[in-house]
Design a protein around this nucleic acid. Structure first.
Lengths: 220, 220
DNA sequence: TTATAATTTAACCATATGGTTAAATTCAAT
DNA sequence: ATTGAATTTAACCATATGGTTAAATTATAA
């Protein structure tokens, strides 16, 4: 999970193996023996390093969360340069890239949320200030706040807008395997899906361009 | 799961109990003994009616899928009446109502998709013609196709647009419990979440109004 | 090299698990 | 009331499960 230069520690091997297992089976369906097999360790090592299956899951979630937040936070939203529209494009590109490259981790976060989110809510609570779209300190939030103040985008609820931005991008990566199998069953070329997904960010940009920017900012 | 007038059959009791169990624990984490307890039947009855845990899951998924599709298909998209913008509002209202009222079933579908979708892909394949947004026979698809032809909305990819429409509405219902717990931990009133969610469809309508309708169709 | 700490192992544990089976019970038709 | 079919039950099964433990092995420091 961390691409460190030195040999992967046993603890990290376990975490990586566990992440795979939780992504595929969820917490309740994950099996400690399978995790041990994947990590090529004796099952008791899981308990030596983590004490319980639950602790492994918590640690995996924390690690996944930290990685995703780090990636999302590495996106520059400094408004000193670039037209607002161009900046929006960069944000969409960058976010899309994260969701695309880490779709398995996104999958795990979604699993956690749909099964009640008891663990991730604590993680979010403890890291609320690191989240780029939190309405108190989030740098992405502040960026859009400023654009509204400057008159570049319409006055609207920023959180609602950010939910729209993110929620339009995520599903295609999550549903891709299913869509491809269905296309296969329909005798269609799954290459169509790839093309469709590659167009997704452009479509989202198009909708948001028309949807939130003031008219004078738009290039037809 | 089916609100029939007569007393709920034992088979249906099992399906309802199983749906609850699968929603909470997923397929792999669900336990047949718990399903039996929830349904107030002896565990062997699950096998008498359904043969295996897998068959129960398939049947639950099929039933959930059928119900959701039925609800989504009951929405009139006849374009003989009402302005396109008003019609869009009705579609958003109606879809929002389905996602809100059946958020647990949506949760299960999402679970199935993120864990590989092996069962639901077959269900979708077999019912492709009933899906309102399928690009060959879907009535929602055809509706938007016509609006584009009539010049009421911009020329755009309809599937991309429908993904945008749906994907903007679903997450708030899925994340609601988690968000409420986080707000609670932050000492904030969870009533804010309820208000926020109630505004969601209006926001989605606003974005799509600006985002897809041609200029002469818009009321500022 | 030795002693200690850290890591790892193999065996174990009590219980859980999806599924099976034969007997008991209930239902429906005559 | 009787018979056969359908349903239900209690017990069972072989294996799986998360976790425990003491011994063995390895690593580290002096």
């Amino acid at each position: 999970m961390k691409g460190k230069k030195e040999k992967e520690s046993k603890r990290d091997k376990i975490l990586n193996a566990a992440a795979e297992e939780f992504i595929e089976y969820g917490f309740y369906g994950a099996r400690t023996q399978r995790i041990a097999n994947k990590a090529k360790v004796n099952k008791a090592m899981l308990h030596y390093y983590f004490s319980s299956k639950e602790n492994i899951y918590k640690e995996v979630l924390k690690t996944v969360f930290n990685l995703l937040i780090e990636k999302l936070n590495s996106i520059k939203v400094d408004d000193k340069e670039g037209r607002p529209e161009e900046k929006m494009r960069q944000i969409i590109d960058a976010y899309n890239e994260v969701f695309k490259n880490y779709s398995n981790y996104v999958r795990l976060v979604i699993y956690e949320v749909i099964t009640g989110g008891r663990y991730i809510q604590q993680i979010i609570f403890e890291n609320i200030n690191r989240i780029p779209f939190n309405p108190w300190t989030g740098k992405l939030y502040k960026y859009f706040e400023k654009q509204i103040r400057k008159g570049n985008i319409r006055k609207l609820n920023i959180i609602q807008m950010l939910i729209s931005l993110i929620s339009q991008m995520v599903p295609v990566y999550i549903a891709k395997p299913v869509a491809e199998n269905i296309f296969k069953k329909l005798g269609l070329d799954k290459f169509i899906i790839e093309k469709f997904i590659n167009k997704r960010k452009e479509f989202v940009m198009d909708i948001l361009k028309h949807g939130i920017f003031k008219k004078s900012n738009k290039r037809r």
